[in-house]
Design a protein around this nucleic acid. Structure first.
Lengths: 151, 151
DNA sequence: TTTACTGCAAAGGGTTTGCAACATG
DNA sequence: CATGTTGCAAACCCTTTGCAGTAAA
């Protein structure tokens, strides 16, 4: 995603206003986190975030990410590993995507698929839901395999 | 899956022979784990397994499940939560399926979809792989929402 | 009888929380 | 200023490991 300066501006504006509407403040730490997430091309672990931005205490990262997630600005995702990863909410980026999870180096890359295939996914999920009294909210379609580097 | 007695027999036979071929033993604990997994209708956490079978020490559960997984008898899956869940390997049950993850009570149910939709999933994944130098190995298509009880 | 496996208890690693100091609106 | 937020350190929880004893083949 690696956002340009202008896009970053928009993100900050959106984040600030959304947080304000929930009675939360848009502090330096939270700004830093939004930027960190805008800078990468896939969901990252908290450890990954901390590496980059030294100085950010662990507990603050956890607490702030929780706040950002509850505000709908950040999406928490869990893939094959135990530890969670975080990415900007799709609502914020206007960029619906899926993930390529490398089973060797554990990296995760965003990827998009053509609209018609996306429609198929929705159809499949509707069918899944229908046959089981399940109220679908969202889906997760990830592919596990070997990335370009590891394959 | 809640297996009948005869099916259980088959599972035990398969497990025993598979383990033997890898120089491992099919012990009482491992048998108990296979039965526990055959008894439920979706992947379960280690805590969930331990609840049922009191007496099984935690460390043994972890170690045995690791062995069973490496032997290809058990599949370790991670959904929205941090802690892993375990299920019998599809190869063992001949029962390819997906998951319905309840975002409220965190329960996970197995579900199957019609073959033609399954083909669509494969097609989508092939497309995903093609456009990114990614070597697909497996996929994970899960639906998140509210289960019948919580909805 | 050999050697894989088990159980306990202690260690490890990531995440959460209490609390006093701090910064934002 | 009032209150949400931060940072530190301790607490927590789940998972892993060392080691002596046990049981499977």
């Amino acid at each position: 995603m690696t956002a340009a300066a202008g896009q970053l501006d928009g993100l900050h504006r959106a984040a600030a206003s959304r947080l304000r509407s929930v009675g939360q403040r848009y502090t330096a730490n939270r700004r830093m986190l939004i930027e960190a997430l805008a800078d990468v091309s896939g969901p990252v672990t908290i450890a990954g975030i901390l590496e980059g931005r030294s100085g950010l205490p662990v507990s603050s990262a956890y607490r702030s990410l929780t706040v950002l997630e509850r505000a709908g600005l950040v999406q928490r995702v869990v893939m094959g590993e135990e530890r969670a990863r975080y990415e900007l909410a799709e609502e914020l980026t206007d960029h619906h995507h899926h993930h390529l999870v490398c089973s060797s180096c554990a990296s995760v890359e965003d990827v998009t698929i053509p609209p018609e295939l996306e429609r198929d996914v929705d159809r499949i999920l509707a069918s899944l839901a229908g046959r089981s009294g399940f109220t679908a909210v969202s889906h997760q379609l990830d592919m596990v395999g070997l990335c370009r580097a590891c394959g």
